Amino acid sequence: MKKTLVLLLALLFLSNTDAQAEVTFKDVSKTSAANDIYYLVNKGIIKGYEDGSFRPNQNVTKTQGAVLIARALKIDTSLVENPEFKDLSVKASGYKEIAKLVEMGVIDKESSFYGGNPLTRMEMAKWLTRAFKLEGEYPSYIHDVTKEERIFVDPLAALGITNMDSTQSFFNPKEPLTRAQISSFLSRTLNPKVRIYIPTIKILVPEIEFQMSIDDVKKNMAKYEKVSESESGKDLYSISYLNYPGFDGREYIIGLLFRDGKLVTLDYSNYDMGLEHGTKEYNDETLNFAKKFEAYSNVKLSRESLEYNIYDYQFANLTYIISSPDTISIQYGTVTFTKLIQ
């Protein structure tokens, strides 16, 4: 009887019964993932334990992670192909979900699955990116991820599903995921409104922020080589700095524009002056359209009809601005990405 009770408690994690909105857990209130946990509970994707706990710091197994993703996808597991893992019985808990995800190309088909092993952050990155067809390019270093692994991590970082910035550019790919962490991953994947917002300026030049005074900017940028400094009329002031190595290892010019003594614009340009990323103020006509961001070729610019396919690069609500016949900018508040149209 005691063993049966322990087994039932363990299986509660994988229970698919409908969650009640009133459910609360005695060990969740102090965790930053509380809202994410209750979001998934309310959707019936995850549950707690009979003793009223959620156990947010408990590691998640690969089998449990597969079941959660299958539930989040709402996939039909009535008919599945046997993936023929040596260590996975057709009677095992989670078998159908694992088999279906292998069939869909989410989980790699190998000789063994090792379902009882802790699910790592990299494994989750692979599964989420494949399962939800996530796309995005993160414009900075990730120090502990290989080039091959970045195709899975970049979308999570770019879309705000995982927390990355230039002062903490580590993904920790080998670390096991806890129940709280996997709740946050899934919640942010399913609900873009709760994704992490990191201002682009903090990725490119973390030492400064908009509306900072000229003196404070000079103080914080002291480690950079100053290239130029000038005053344009009584209201405008500009300073440029050399940034080497830049976020991708190349030389960049950081151009800063101040209005009334406050930082309002940042240009982040290749050393050869080909603009890569930037923030600008434009008084041009603004145009809202589909959220995709990609390289452009043979694009006809028309203020009456724009039919670009644009990736949702990092933010949910964006404004698109045509600033010249060969440039299009994507703006979020005071932050703008600019691309030259090839």
Rank of each mutant, 00 (worst) to 15 (best):
residue 82 N to S: 14
residue 141 Y to P: 06
residue 81 E to S: 15
residue 74 K to F: 12
residue 128 L to T: 02
residue 64 Q to A: 08
residue 96 K to V: 07
residue 107 I to C: 08
residue 85 F to R: 13
residue 55 R to L: 04
residue 144 D to K: 10
residue 112 S to W: 06
residue 29 S to D: 15
residue 107 I to M: 11
residue 95 Y to T: 11
residue 132 F to N: 05
residue 71 R to Y: 07
residue 125 A to D: 04
residue 93 S to F: 09
residue 129 T to L: 12
residue 151 I to T: 11
residue 109 K to I: 10
residue 67 V to N: 00
residue 83 P to R: 13
residue 45 I to E: 00
residue 128 L to Y: 03
residue 41 V to G: 00
residue 43 K to F: 03
residue 107 I to S: 05
residue 100 K to T: 03
residue 47 K to P: 00
residue 148 E to V: 02
residue 54 F to A: 00
residue 123 E to W: 01
residue 108 D to Q: 12
residue 121 R to T: 03
residue 133 K to V: 01
residue 143 H to I: 04
residue 76 D to G: 12
residue 108 D to F: 09
residue 145 V to C: 03
residue 39 Y to K: 01
residue 32 S to K: 12
residue 41 V to D: 00
residue 53 S to N: 06
residue 129 T to E: 08
residue 125 A to G: 07
residue 29 S to R: 13
residue 49 Y to M: 01
residue 104 M to T: 13
residue 95 Y to H: 12
residue 69 I to R: 01
residue 66 A to P: 04
residue 101 L to Q: 10
residue 99 A to M: 14
residue 144 D to V: 05
residue 33 A to C: 05
residue 87 D to P: 09
residue 148 E to W: 09
residue 127 W to Y: 14
residue 92 A to S: 15
residue 152 F to S: 00
residue 45 I to F: 02
residue 42 N to M: 02
residue 58 Q to Y: 04
residue 146 T to N: 06
residue 124 M to H: 01
residue 127 W to T: 00
residue 78 S to E: 14
residue 146 T to R: 06
residue 52 G to S: 07
residue 126 K to G: 05
residue 56 P to R: 01
residue 138 Y to R: 07
residue 67 V to G: 00
residue 112 S to V: 10
residue 143 H to S: 08
residue 51 D to N: 08
residue 122 M to D: 04
residue 62 K to D: 03
residue 105 G to N: 12
residue 70 A to S: 11
residue 108 D to P: 08
residue 89 S to F: 11
residue 134 L to G: 08
residue 34 A to N: 09
residue 90 V to N: 15
residue 124 M to W: 03
residue 30 K to E: 14
residue 43 K to Q: 09
residue 117 N to I: 02
residue 76 D to N: 14
residue 108 D to S: 13
residue 46 I to Y: 00
residue 138 Y to W: 15
residue 52 G to D: 04
residue 115 G to A: 10
residue 106 V to R: 04
residue 86 K to H: 07
residue 58 Q to G: 05
residue 36 D to P: 01
residue 36 D to T: 04
residue 62 K to A: 06
residue 147 K to Y: 11
residue 32 S to R: 06
residue 137 E to T: 11
residue 73 L to N: 09
residue 114 Y to W: 11
residue 127 W to K: 02
residue 58 Q to V: 01
residue 108 D to T: 08
residue 117 N to W: 07
residue 140 S to E: 12
residue 64 Q to H: 06
residue 39 Y to D: 01
residue 57 N to K: 04
residue 106 V to S: 09
residue 152 F to Q: 00
residue 56 P to D: 02
residue 136 G to A: 10
